[in-house]
Design a protein around this nucleic acid. Structure first.
Lengths: 180, 180
DNA sequence: TAATTCTTTCAGATCATACTGAAAGGAATA
DNA sequence: TATTCCTTTCAGTATGATCTGAAAGAATTA
């Protein structure tokens, strides 16, 4: 049995968990994901419980969340009643899933909010003889720059996703023109 | 006085705070940042306290953190002993600051960890007649894909940043066409 | 149907983080 | 120097997120 293998995996799992915590993902969820990522065979709930030392409830909840994200899959083993879980291992696919989800849940709401904010001041009836006219104009300018930035980032991410490793090459070339 | 202006700004601040919370930034810190972003004039600690209803200590701590990140600046008003704070309003500059910092604190450690993990199994003496040989090979393959992905993302972010504020204006337009 | 095996749920406990407010620290003014 | 004004710090508190474990639920087998 390879001790180094075990220690190497444990290290990766620990660090992946820490990173997840910095990105608003619970440490345990990230650790479970890492554990499945470094396991070539699907694991069951009890495997997760014993390897990460977490309770059944905790394992169950986090596994479900990961399934909902689409980062892991439920699989069944012939002749076994237990459910097993297998990881999506294509990192580009993983990136697409995470990007899509975070964009939907975090970027889109802020874009909608900015548009709403712009509307609110645009419809203001007192415009034209308002002492705050200057401030409002500056406010609108800033909101607009933010919106343009978010749209530009959307385009970049779309391009990356569109072709995975391949699309990335195209994007790199495109960006190279501006690099100098 | 423009009521719609006030309500519009309040909405933006609220949403920006919520978004920050999802990204591992404390709600208050994100709200202070938003408040300064939508204010054309620098604000002092008391302004922040009264507009966001937070304590002096809380305001002080979070303002300092924002200064440390480089997202806001300390400024002084002639004839006033108080310190005022002004926001970096160039969104591309903001993006560069955040990207640089998060990369240093979160991406680089995971890259180092992966390299360390690879080393650990490569140096394993039992290689060759290890029953886990297959699993280790698969493990190495997965680590390697992850590393390549992270490197590719690094390249993209470098290029976006390298263009800087000016180049980005052009890039935005170019990407906008590309996105259609 | 009852027994078995596994999964999900959730109230309460635990733990981490953020916040308050008052006291100490520092810098400008008189 | 003393006073005033402002900022920072930090111990204690509040808040919120996460986790546990046991009970209920669901699916399969006998």
């Amino acid at each position: 049995m390879s001790d180094a293998f075990e220690r190497s995996r444990a290290l990766f799992i620990r660090r992946w968990g820490e990173m997840g915590a910095n990105w608003g993902i619970s440490r345990t969820m990230a650790e479970i994901h890492a554990l499945l990522f470094v396991s070539s065979k699907p694991l069951c709930t009890d495997d997760v419980m014993s390897q990460l030392q977490v309770s059944r409830g905790n394992a169950s909840m986090n596994l479900r969340q990961l399934v909902n994200w689409g980062l892991i899959y439920r699989v069944h083993q012939a002749g076994d009643r237990k459910e097993y879980f297998d990881c999506e291992t294509d990192v580009w696919q993983m990136f697409e899933i995470i990007t899509r989800e975070r964009r939907r849940r975090e970027v889109e709401p802020i874009v909608e909010t900015i548009e709403k904010c712009q509307e609110m001041v645009r419809d203001e009836p007192k415009r034209g003889r308002n002492p705050q006219e200057e401030d409002i104009a500056e406010y609108e300018r800033r909101l607009n720059e933010m919106l343009e930035f978010l749209n530009a980032m959307n385009v970049v991410f779309n391009m990356i996703i569109k072709g995975g490793n391949k699309g990335m090459k195209g994007l790199t070339k495109l960006l190279a023109k501006f690099g100098k």
